[in-house]
Design a protein around this nucleic acid. Structure first.
Lengths: 139, 139
DNA sequence: CTCGCGTATTATAATCATTCTAAACAAGCG
DNA sequence: CGCTTGTTTAGAATGATTATAATACGCGAG
């Protein structure tokens, strides 16, 4: 298992405290986070950390394909610590994001557009209501 | 063909100038627009129109299922004048949104999650580079 | 047709996520 | 160990969207 520092070095990214703490957090807490989420949770162990650094490095990690920015919520950016392509379900009531382990859409599905653009990533989002919220609303 | 006013009346939405102009625009210009786009293009025929009204009514129309807010771009909201479910391709370079006429994902595809949530809408976005931008970058 | 209520619009200010700026600092190379 | 360059920091700026409060208007009741 590669450590955070090893991973940064292998990608030729300068090793700084912000980056190590951020990457450790992402490796230990697979999930979906806003910059603010992460910032708050890292402050305990690194009080001088700046929110701008969290943004900078989330963007940096995203450019390196280490994480993936999701476009699930309009109000704020959410990053997925798991960069592998996978579908999501988003609850319209509570806003929670669920990972779905589903096969990718085969290329033949959109073959008729293959002359018009080159697809590098596909994003599948199902929206609706999760079980938890459905139960609450029926009371 | 239903007029904008008829459509508003049939939905029991109060008929105001802002709404009629906005709805006419959306019916005549099927496409993808930001609130600002629409605001600017309506100012010629309705100089007193306020941007806040554009936002209010885009949200209202969205709630009535007349249009659909897309989650394709992080910086600003984009509305699709065509509310029917369809996939999109977004160019990472120029940002343009293309409509794709593709079949919906069959329910059996995500059957294993049918006990966990109720899907009311699916969103499929392909990202990559469009032909136009690909040509430019090769020069 | 007119009145009056309730809602929409307007202009402006507020909000809030994200990015920018400039100065201080630190990583890592020689 | 010092230099160079890129990073962090604190704070300010930006920009999309929403809130506020006063005015105007739609439209149903009479």
């Amino acid at each position: 298992m590669e450590t955070a520092i090893e991973k940064l070095k292998s990608l030729k990214i300068k090793v700084t405290r912000s980056r190590v703490e951020l990457l450790k957090f992402l490796m230990d807490n697979k999930g979906h986070f806003t910059a603010e989420d992460i910032f708050k949770r890292l402050q305990a162990q690194y009080p001088n950390l700046n929110l701008a650094s969290v943004y900078n490095n989330l963007n940096l990690f995203d450019e390196h394909g280490m994480i993936r920015r999701l476009y699930t919520h309009r109000e704020k950016a959410v990053w997925d610590a798991d960069a592998r392509a996978h579908a999501h379900f988003v609850c319209d009531v509570c806003g929670e994001i669920f990972d779905l382990d589903l096969p990718l859409i085969p290329e033949k599905y959109y073959l008729k557009y293959s002359g018009s653009f080159k697809v590098s990533h596909e994003e599948i989002i199902f929206r609706g209501i999760c079980n938890k919220c459905a139960k609450k609303e029926n009371i």
